[in-house]
Design a protein around this nucleic acid. Structure first.
Lengths: 340, 340
DNA sequence: GAATTTTGTGATAGCGCTATCAAAAATAAA
DNA sequence: TTTATTTTTGATAGCGCTATCACAAAATTC
């Protein structure tokens, strides 16, 4: 007669199944898998064979619960963003983390997500680190996250000092350099096109422009600060306003390449010769910026290197005294590509 | 004297802390939080107060372990893709799932990720459903995933029938319609530009073009099948090949808007008048396609609706007999925007 | 009123794993 | 050889939660 099951089980092979087959104690199996150097080769072989035979897979939830320790999970919390460059950064960072045995996963923090489930994931599954991408200062996620006692990385333009590891994207400096470049090329009546200005990343770029203009005693009033997304259409639409308000304009610096390209499109439509009548500069070094006609002047932040840099910072922090063997990273360099 | 701790604990407030404070058993607290209708109002109030006072947060790992049941986690497994439209789809899908109390998270499945950690996450944390995005037929993830006994959704151009819920992107049909549109506009010497052709999504589009050309008895040999990424540069470079090989060409259909726009750029550079000398059509209805000069003819798959559609399919499946109150979805409609 | 059903509540025993400690085996030192 | 030391191994007792059952309290029924 079938015996009554008292509990639902996951139905999976467990440690003790393996232990039974290998004829050893459960602890020995646990050790063979987690700290193999503590187990004799003879038993290790037996156990590995049993693991393979049964197709055993450890249950991380049980492991987490028993050890109150993490299973190398790293939560990457990012707001709604389709920024291609930023995704590159995140990918590179993930690759570095995976290479060291960590398991990164991405959670998008936009509404309608409530913070409760984020917090629950982080604390329940003993996430061992949190990476915040371009998180706004007044996002509620901060409160959730800073109360955890684990390393937190923030990647973004805000130089926030209240988390462990801050990787600044240095948007202000980059835009400063770009604007100086344009000024040095001889342009004087320079406008700025900013969109999505509620995000700090764009504000930083805006300020970089201001800084450069002020440094060279050039007027800073020719600014269009659109609240629409920083895309092609917004750039395209903005040109009309520039032309009406400041016909004397000889250059427009834009906070993204999309905006710049949008402006360029509208110039083509209006037969404004670029860059002879109007110079256009973008930001981001996107792929199209070098292919469009004429190519845009643009500036790139070294996103990929920054991703690697951030990962290595975090890995060092996580290993503290493990003395990991991490590659050296070059200091990320800002690069201008220009056709002006 | 400090008493010896026998075990590391998470240091968090536990159920029994709450139970003690409220003066009830742990089971009552568990019930008050999970199935409140089973607990009297009097105790419920006491317990809720205690939960707030202590700031209690349930440990999902323990819950998962104890109940061998999921905590509404949904894994979205996606390959390396920066496809803006696809990201929109995923976002919409996530929003629908979150609205129903699920907790989706994203795992990127590209190398260097090993499948072991994916599998471990899925089985250990009792993920209650898996969403696969544009997963290639021979990706090893399939083996991992199909052995789980949970609903699996596949979103992509492949009409795979070996998972529960298949949401096809119907790339072939869309490209067929687009090509017919171009043909109906009177173009006859039509080329096709495909890139990234190793991905099934692009193959489907390629086949849609073939189908339409064959249907109208037009030649199907004018194909450039680039193995480079489907971006602006590839498009730009391809034009030269088209012009050299088939100078009689009067239209080029491209498998993405980026390719099409790249072709357009090169036309501008060579002073080829679009669409009079050469018509260009893209795929994807990206934002720039309507802003560039001249606007591209393009076709869009209704990604957002598809995301919603997929979510609702999955939710229905997950709730089976819960009788969820889900909104009705329109059948996704393919839309052509054209300037030809 | 007693007997039945329907709640509501709590003690108990795990879920699958690991920390801890004690015992056993292997090695080194005396 | 005996003794001290190190290395391996396993029994036990939880980690924080929930399934299960048993029992008390309340609401029905007869």
């Amino acid at each position: 007669m079938a015996e009554l099951k008292k509990r639902k089980t996951t139905g999976q092979i467990t440690l003790s199944d393996v232990a039974k087959l290998a004829g050893v104690g459960t602890m020995t199996v646990s050790r063979a898998l987690r700290t193999p150097e503590q187990v004799s080769d003879k038993l290790k072989n037996k156990i590995n064979k049993a693991v393979k035979t049964l197709g055993y897979r450890p249950n991380l939830a049980a492991s987490t619960l028993a050890s109150a320790a993490s299973n190398n999970l790293i939560a990457i919390i990012m707001p709604n963003s389709h920024d291609h460059q930023l995704l590159l950064l995140i990918r590179e960072m993930q690759n570095c983390l995976i290479a060291q045995g960590y398991t990164p996963f991405i959670v998008e923090s936009n509404p309608p997500r409530k913070n409760t489930d984020l917090l629950a994931m982080i604390s329940s599954y003993s996430v061992c680190a949190i990476v915040l991408i371009n998180m706004d200062k007044n996002n509620r996620v901060w409160q959730v996250v800073t109360h955890q006692n684990i390393p937190i990385v923030h990647i973004g333009s805000d130089a926030l000092n209240y988390v462990d590891i801050n990787v600044g994207l240095n948007n202000m400096e980059a835009m400063f350099q770009l604007t100086e470049y344009v000024i040095k090329k001889g342009y004087r009546e320079i406008g700025l096109l900013c969109a999505n200005h509620e995000y700090s990343i764009f504000q930083q770029r805006l300020h970089g422009w201001y800084k450069a203009m002020l440094k060279h005693h050039l007027p800073t009033h020719r600014v269009i600060n659109a609240s629409s997304p920083a895309n092609f259409s917004t750039g395209s639409r903005a040109l009309a306003d520039f032309v009406i308000n400041w016909p004397e304009l000889d250059a427009i610096v834009c906070t993204t390449d999309e905006l710049a390209c949008g402006v360029l499109y509208e110039c083509q439509r209006r037969h404004i010769r670029v860059p002879y009548q109007l110079a256009i500069a973008g930001f981001g070094d996107s792929e199209f910026s070098q292919v469009c006609h004429p190519p845009l002047t643009t500036i790139s932040l070294p996103y990929k290197s920054i991703g690697e840099y951030a990962a290595i910072q975090l890995l060092q922090r996580l290993s503290e005294n493990h003395s990991l063997n991490l590659p050296a990273v070059d200091t990320p360099i800002i690069k201008i590509r220009g056709s002006l």
